[in-house]
Design a protein around this nucleic acid. Structure first.
Lengths: 203, 203
DNA sequence: CCCCTAATGGGTCTCTAGTTCCGTTAAGAT
DNA sequence: ATCTTAACGGAACTAGAGACCCATTAGGGG
C-alpha cells in the first residue's frame, strides 16, 4: 500500500498527472470545508475533482493520505519570518499570521483536518510535525536577531518563544473551543515577550 | 435521533442499565487505546462490552456520541485545585496534573479521541468545552488566592494563567507531535508564573 | 411473590466506502 | 508523425457499518 503520494517520483509527471493532482487536492479542501475530516470520502473528492475514484485510490493511501499530502503541499508555501527591527512587532506579526491561518476558511479547515488525521495516522502526523518544525525554525530567526540587537537576554531559546505564541491559539481552537480573535493573538505575543524579557526562555 | 446519552432521564436506571453503560464506556476506552477515534466502531465496542450492538446504537448517537459521553463522565471525576500556600507550587502541580492526564494510556487516548471527535461533532465539542471550562475555573482559584496573598499583582486573570500553562503541553501533543515530559511541564508552569508576576496577565 | 413493561439482544437487511479488473486515453520518446 | 506504455476511468464486486424487527430478559412497583 506504499504509494508515493508526491508528484516527485512519478515516471510521467506531464500535464495530465499534474492537473489531476491539483484538481484532487483542490477538491479535498472544498470537501474539508464542507464536511471536515471525519466526513471526507474519497468518492466525494473524486466526483468533485471530476476524476475517476480509481485514480484517487491509486495515488493516495486514504483520506489521511490525502490531507497529509495537502499539508506537505502547504508547507512549501509557508511565509518567511518578519524582520521589522523590533522584536515586539515581529512577534506580533507571527501571532497575527497564525491567527490568519486558523481563521481562514479553507486553510483553517485543512489545518484542523490534518490535526484530526494526525491523531490516528502516522503519515499525517509526520507531515504536520514537519510543517511546524520548519515554521518554528524560520520564525525563531526573529528572536535570534533580537538577541543580537540586545532586545532579549543572551541564551533565550527562540524556538520556544515561537511555540509559546502559537500554543494558546491552538489550545483555544482545538481544546477549549473558545473563539480566537485579534486581541487573543496580540495578548499571546505580548505574554511571550514579557516572559522572554524576564529570562523565562533561557535554557 | 435525539437520545439522552446520560443516565439521568432514563426511566428505569436500575442495576442492568447502569452495568451496561459502565461496560460500554469501559470498552470504548479500550478500543480507543487500540485503534483511536478514527478506528472506533460501535460493533467492536458492543462486542468487547459483551452487549448487543442494538443496545449501543439505541443509547448513543454514534462514535462521536460515545466519546462525548465518556468525556462528560470524566468531567465529574476531575480533581480539585492545589492549595500549597505557594503559587509556584500550585502552578507546578497543575502542569503535572495535565502531564499525568495526557501521558496516561487510557486517559490520554480518550482525550485525543474527544479532541478529534470535536473537530467534526457538535456534541463532542460541547463536552470538551465544558470539561475545560470547569477545570480552568477550578484551578483559577489557586491564582486568586495567590493574588490575595500578594504573590501576584492585583487584576491578574487567573483563568488565563491556567490556560497559559496547559496550552504548550496540548500544542506539543496535538500539533507539533513533540514528546511531552516532566521538564516540559515544569517549564510551562515557570514561564506562565514569570509572565504573571510581571503583569502580563492583567486585563 | 407476581405482573407489567422498560430495556436488551439476536438476526437480518440495506447502503456506501473501498477494491479490483480491464479497456481507453494521452504523455513523451524516437 | 507514430508508437509504446504510464496513467486514467467506468463498472462490477466485496465487506462492514449502521438501521430495523421482534422475541426475550429482568427491574421494580403492587
Amino acid at each position: 500500500m506504499e504509494q508515493d503520494s508526491r508528484l516527485a517520483g512519478t515516471v510521467r509527471p506531464g500535464g495530465r498527472t499534474a492537473r489531476v493532482r491539483a484538481a484532487v487536492l483542490e477538491a479535498t479542501q472544498d470537501e474539508l470545508v464542507l464536511h471536515g475530516f471525519h466526513g471526507l470520502s474519497m468518492d466525494a473528492v473524486a466526483a468533485r475533482a471530476g476524476v475517476g475514484k480509481t485514480t484517487v485510490y491509486r495515488r493516495w493511501a486514504g483520506a489521511a493520505g490525502l490531507v497529509a499530502d495537502l499539508m506537505t503541499e502547504l508547507a512549501d508555501q509557508s511565509a518567511a519570518h518578519a524582520d521589522t527591527g523590533s522584536i515586539e512587532e515581529d512577534l506580533r506579526a507571527n501571532a497575527l499570521s497564525v491567527l490568519a491561518a486558523i481563521t481562514d476558511e479553507r486553510l483553517g479547515a485543512t489545518l484542523q483536518a490534518v490535526i484530526a488525521a494526525a491523531t490516528c495516522d502516522k503519515e499525517a502526523a509526520a507531515a504536520l510535525s514537519t510543517f511546524y518544525e520548519r515554521r518554528i525554525r524560520e520564525w525563531g530567526k526573529s528572536v535570534d536577531l533580537a538577541i543580537r540587537r540586545g532586545e532579549l537576554p543572551e541564551g533565550t531559546d527562540g524556538h520556544e518563544v515561537i511555540r509559546a505564541i502559537s500554543a494558546p491559539l491552538y489550545y483555544r481552537l482545538l481544546v477549549t473551543k473558545e473563539p480566537v480573535d485579534k486581541a487573543t493573538a496580540e495578548r499571546s505575543a505580548t505574554r511571550a515577550l514579557v516572559a522572554a524579557r524576564n529570562g523565562a526562555f533561557i535554557d
